[in-house]
Design a protein around this nucleic acid. Structure first.
Lengths: 175, 175
DNA sequence: GCCGTATATTTCAGCGATAAAATATCCCGG
DNA sequence: CCGGGATATTTTATCGCTGAAATATACGGC
């Protein structure tokens, strides 16, 4: 489904805040917007990439392997870089291997690990598709000037670190 | 999985931008951060709510029904308000009905529709749990002062409208 | 060298979500 | 009032992802 209209979001948030005053309106709304925006961007990107037959995560995995070039990379690195579970990286790399976009062979130095390398056609696909993703991002942020964009990025970076520090536990331990 | 470290994200983005110059670094990074932040916030919120036995979407559905009080609401409204598919709303409301947090009866005026109403215990749960969600948001945004928060919200609102306007089509029609 | 523990990846079972088909009801023009 | 198209919801099949168990390999102390 697609993004709810923003007026409805704000109206709903205000209606709740009016009934339950402990709820901080702006903070709640910001979190809500971030979650919805992230979902929606991901969905749009998937749609944008569908003609190429890749999902967003598949593309990012492919790009990450591509960016390592001949050095290659390992599934564990992809987990870290993409924030995905090992199980999912296995599935995603399966798909990429099946389409011959990457190769996967056991490492010689440590045979528990698998070496992932982009193939010729994988590299071609990246060079073909990545500019589209860039085009999407550029279009989306078209009416942010450089300063505004930098400001937005600053806020997002702060949120990343806030998120790292905060709330790893359960709230009131069963409240 | 959890959020990748921000230095790794930025380094990866720069490595790619160096290889494929058409890709706009800041815009791409902003989109990437939004997607990851949204995912991570949603995951944290789910974890935060687990003790109450609700997922994020279940809570939002419950809250939306709650906020309508005796007026009640309909599955279609929840789809719109939450940005979820009809199928998912059926599943979510099934769960809420099963736990007697809401009731669901066919509407008298239009028997295709189902009237959803919060129950006594549903309302109690909302009043118990919503402040936790507020607590999460407040904690996450603790070191944004009012002006900074307003600025962040402004950026997010602009993104919502940008997203509404942009990129509904497939990119280069099979490119 | 051998054993126990740690690490890397895959397998397995299950969950949350979706698209598309099926179902039920409504409404309108004749 | 009846038939056809629109609308609201549920069902069905499937997808993407995860946690936890299983597997395979490495490493450190004895």
């Amino acid at each position: 489904m697609s993004l709810p209209p923003i007026e409805a979001l704000e109206a709903g948030a205000r209606r709740i805040a009016a009934r339950i005053p402990e709820v901080p309106l702006d903070q709640t709304l910001a979190v809500r917007l971030m979650i919805l925006l992230g979902r929606e961007m991901s969905a749009r990107l998937d749609q944008w990439l569908r003609p190429a037959g890749l999902t967003e995560v598949e593309l990012r995995a492919l790009v990450t392997v591509f960016s390592q070039g001949d050095a290659g990379s390992f599934p564990g690195e992809l987990c870290e870089a993409l924030g995905q579970s090992p199980a999912n990286i296995t599935r995603v790399t399966d798909a990429l291997v099946a389409r011959a976009l990457i190769t996967r062979v056991p490492s010689d130095e440590d045979r528990r690990r698998m070496e992932l390398r982009v193939t010729q056609s994988g590299a071609e696909l990246v060079r073909d598709v990545l500019p589209r993703l860039g085009g999407f991002s550029r279009e989306l942020l078209a009416d942010f000037d450089a300063a505004e964009l930098e400001q937005l990025l600053g806020g997002l970076r702060r949120l990343v670190t806030a998120l790292e520090g905060v709330a790893q536990h359960t709230p009131t331990e069963q409240g």
